[in-house]
């Protein structure tokens, strides 16, 4: 049996490892089981406030166009075709299936009961401290199909 060797540079491949969705889902299940469902929301909230702080800053500066750009790029990168509709005060983001949920179902990875919080809680946290708010209008646990709404908070 010959010895096999391969060398790869980062630039040889695109960075897209969808199995990570399954690992995150296992993390959410673990949190819920050991610390309760509020811990899942608290963790996602803290993560989103910290990691998406630059996006929150752009939302504050340029408005909902920042979110439209972010979500359109994110879903397209994972193979989904999001539909967006935006005015100065509202943004709707609609996907027929969540690429994360589709990948996990296809590979029989466990899908956390609270996986929808990666959309609902994260979106709310991104909007926190800005003139905008988020609501999850519709979500299907089986496919992750969703309608996400971002809107200017009433004065």
């Amino acid at each position: 049996m010959a010895k096999q060797v391969i060398t790869r540079r980062a630039s040889d491949n695109a960075y897209l490892h969808k199995d990570f969705h399954g690992a995150l889902s296992v993390g959410l299940e673990y949190l819920e089981e050991h610390y309760g469902e509020e811990a899942v929301r608290e963790y996602l909230h803290r993560f989103a406030r910290a990691f998406y702080a630059p996006l929150t800053g752009r939302l504050q500066q340029v408005g909902l166009a920042a979110l439209e750009e972010h979500f359109a790029a994110m879903y397209r990168a994972e193979g989904a075709q999001p539909r967006t509709a935006r005015t100065a005060d509202d943004l709707f983001v609609e996907v027929d299936a969540c690429p994360a949920v589709v990948h996990m179902r296809r590979h029989n990875y466990p899908v956390s009961r609270l996986f929808y919080e990666t959309t609902r809680t994260v979106n709310e946290a991104i909007c926190e401290g800005t003139a905008f708010a988020a609501e999850l209008l519709d979500y299907d646990d089986e496919t992750g199909r969703s309608i996400q709404h971002f809107y200017r908070r009433p004065l």
Partner: peptide, 12 residues
């Protein structure tokens, strides 16, 4: 959804 490209910071 948290993109799989944002998983590593979420994991950390």
């Amino acid at each position: 959804m948290i993109s799989c490209t944002d998983f590593i910071p979420a994991y950390s």
